[in-house]
Structures are given as C-alpha cells and as structure tokens.
Design a protein around this nucleic acid. Structure first.
Lengths: 238, 238
DNA sequence: CGATTAATTGAGTTATGTCAAAGACCGTGG
DNA sequence: CCACGGTCTTTGACATAACTCAATTAATCG
C-alpha cells in the first residue's frame, strides 16, 4: 500500500548522486524533483506486482527494495536489491502497454521519488539524458545478471554464496565499530538461498560452517555480519 | 576478421521488419541504411571480443551470431543466438568508453549492417526512436535472462533443456517436409549444455533418451530436429 | 510470556558432475 | 573415390554435491 505525501519535497541537490539523473544541471534537477511525488512504502509493503501495467518510475531515496520473480507454482527468485539512488520500474519509460516483469517489495520502511503518467512523459521529454541513463542502468543490470547466469551454471553453491555476499557487501556493507561489516538490511537465509539458486537448508549449512570458521559472526535473524571478507574472496576465487 | 563491402546496399524496405528500427518511415530507413555499411562475417569468425571497446552497432541481415561469455579460466556460457533483424552491440549506443560485455561469433556465414563512430552518433541523433527501440530490446533480453536465471535455480536439467529447445524453435525453427521442425543453424551439444547450465555428457544423455522416445529425430552433428514439440511442452511444464 | 516465524541440523536419496574411452560423422587431401 | 584425422557425440562407471523430508531449536513480536 504505497502512500503518497505531496508535502514532502526531496532535496534536488541530493538527486545529483543518482546515476539515473546524471548529467542534469541544478535547474533540471529542480524540475525533475518538482514533477515527481514522494511515495512512502512501509516494510513488507508491495510497490508493484509482476505482470501489472508499468505506469510509474521510482527512485529510492531512503530504504531498500527487493526485486523478485515468482513462478506460476509459487517458487520465488530474488533478482536484486535496490538501495538509495537506484531506480525501480525503468520499464515505465518505454511508455504504457508494458508489464512489470518483477514484483518489488520494501524490506525496510522506504521513501521513493516517483513519476507517472503525463508527468513522467514530460520529464523524459524535457530531459532526454534520463533515457540514456536508464539504458545504462539496464545495461549494467543485464551484465550483472549475465555474470550470475554464468556462475550459477558453472560454479558450486559455496562459491556462488561467497560471491553473492561479496556483492552485497559492496552494495550495502557498513563497517561496525568492531571492524566487521554488516549488510545493512534484513536479509533472510531464504533470500540468500534464492539469490544463489539453492535451497534454504544448503545455504544455512554453509553459513553455519563459515560462522564456525570465524568468517562470519553470529548475528540475529535476517542479519549478516562478515568478519573476514578476505576469506570470502579466497572461497569465491577457488 | 570482418570484411566490409561498401558496394553492397541493403534494401531499406526490408529494414522495416527490424524492431530496432520500428517506427521509422521509409525516408528515415533510407537514411539509416545509407549511414551504415555492410559487414560480411565468415562462419566461426569473431565480430568482437568481450572487453573490447564498444564502437559499433550491428544488425543481422542474414546468418546467425552466437553471443557468449568466457570466464578467466576459460569456461564459456552461451548467452543467446541472434538471427536476422536482431541487433548486436547495442551498448555502442551509449557512446564510447563502454566495453563489450560478451564475445560475438558467427555460427554460419553472415551479413550485417553496421554503424560506427560519427555515422552511428549521427543516426541516433537524427532518429531518436532508435534509442528507445534499443532499450526495448535490452529490456526484453533482461527479462529473458531473468527467466533463465529463475529456471536454472529452480528447475532440473531435463526441464530446462526442454524449455531451451522450445525457445530455440520459436526463434529459429523451420518446418521440414516431413513435418519435423529443424533448428536452422549449427548447434552443438556443447552449446546446448552451456545454454542450459549443465555439462555436455548430461545434455547428450537426455537428448539421446528423447531420440529413443521419438521426441527428437536423428540429425547429423550440430543439428537438432524436433519431431514432437508437444512432448517437449509437457516436459517443460512438468 | 506465548505464538509465530526463522534457522539449524540430521538422515537418506538422487540428480548431476567427473573421468574416461569408444564410436560416429565429416571435411580434406591424397 | 576412398582413407585419414580431427571433431563431435555417445555411453559407462563412479563419486558426490545438493536436494528432500522432517524434526528441533532459537529468535522476535505482540
């Protein structure tokens, strides 16, 4: 249940950090910010559902979104997580008639900047760089997925899990006072298993072993704390 | 070793069938055709290598290209095949400084229409619809890869192989006089194995079993002949 | 503190990978 | 035209990573 707050105005200057809006000058950013509206999304709330018409483009300001696909039999795959300054729903840029290929839910309370309908079309028209930026984002994502496709087909679970953790650290790692690195959003074993293309028990076993070896630290549920990143690199590289 | 033949002029009208050039009127197609040059690529010749700077955009006129990724240890993954009216190297649209994320080789003698450098930039500038079309192509590809990622993580080899064959039939299937459907380019067991994320022996075993059951017909090497597509559908759907 | 959801762990099974050798096909050159 | 050599493909035997099913323990929230 997304909730729109017309009162909230994001800081246009902060938007400059978003790759989607790269190359826009301050007045342009101001225009873009004014054309959008803020969406507040509570933890576990769904932004849009796979198969629904792609009407809105979103930019994460705060929080974290989970992008996933579901099969007809209910099996899920986590495609990626999107954090601050990352877009969701770029497909909407291609105009109406497109269907969202994935479901997006918030894993923590999140705030987004959203554009839809005429406002969206106006923004892209006035600032065509956005289209190229979106394409760049998509291209990067495609490459990422290609890499994962290769991994999943050629590497075993342990290695893939190490690579996935390293990627998540780069994307959302924060240094704790004691030197460990925390992945700063709730990440269940099940999520990790789905990202890696394995089952929960297998993922859990490997992570337990790593805790025993001191590579990971005990954290609560849905939490991951990496104590020895270098060990993960060694595992990832075989 | 691509070979350019400035003498050859493709038929602008035929280009209308390419999704990359959708929405362009005849004069525009003429302009686009004139700006490009024809590239002839012999079987097994490489169009461009993974990691090389993305300088050219290509459109397949005749033939078939194989798009693949190679790991540092030499393991390969076949990402897709591109046939007539499909583009290769769309990344070049994003301007110089990009590196091709995959290697592209011809699996049969092929003819491409290619744009590079200033000509490429001019064409996109004069016909901005191409950029949106390229994005659409990329979006479709991303969805395809996402679907494969889900399959490879959740389905077993037999099912994945059936789905892959069905996809290839849709993409490059031709009806033979005897009613079977031939995938109309050389496709080694090894290629199939790489597309499916398995090993050659496993793929070979499954295909042999299908031949024994009459689902496939004996074809020469690097050839696939489907006798009973419906059986594949049944396997794919479990 | 009880109820609920997440995580761990065990035991048994099997799909799939690995290693290896033999067989079939095809283009090439004598 | 046939024989040769290099690919590609098939097939076997074996090892094992990973899945499945299932029960237990641990965390978190109301």
């Amino acid at each position: 249940m997304p909730h729109t707050s017309p009162g909230f105005r994001p800081d246009p200057a902060a938007l400059a950090a978003a790759p989607l809006l790269a190359g826009l000058d301050p007045p342009a950013l101001h225009d873009v910010a004014a054309a959008g509206h803020t969406t507040r999304l509570a933890k576990d709330a769904t932004l849009f559902e796979q198969g629904a018409p792609a009407t809105a483009l979103h930019l994460v300001l705060h929080g974290r979104l989970k992008v996933l696909q579901t099969t007809s039999e209910g099996q899920q795959t986590v495609l990626r997580f999107a954090g601050p300054n990352e877009p969701a729903g770029v497909l909407a840029l291609l105009g109406p008639g497109q269907a969202y290929p994935a479901t997006v839910v918030a894993v923590v309370d999140s705030v987004l900047l959203s554009w839809e309908g005429a406002a969206l079309r106006g923004v892209v028209e006035r600032h065509p760089a956005i289209m190229a930026n979106a394409m760049r984002a998509m291209s990067g994502r495609t490459q990422d997925v290609h890499a994962r496709l290769r991994e999943i087909g050629t590497e075993r679970v342990e290695r893939r899990l190490a690579m996935t953790l390293l990627r998540l650290m780069r994307q959302a790692g924060v240094r704790e006072p004691d030197g460990t690195v925390r992945i700063d959003f709730p990440l269940a074993r099940q999520d990790l298993a789905e990202m890696v293309g394995t089952t929960l028990p297998t993922a859990s076993r490997i992570l337990s072993a790593w805790e025993a070896q001191g590579i990971l630290a005990e954290a609560g549920r849905r939490q991951v704390l990496v104590r020895d990143p270098h060990a993960l690199v060694r595992i990832a590289e075989g």
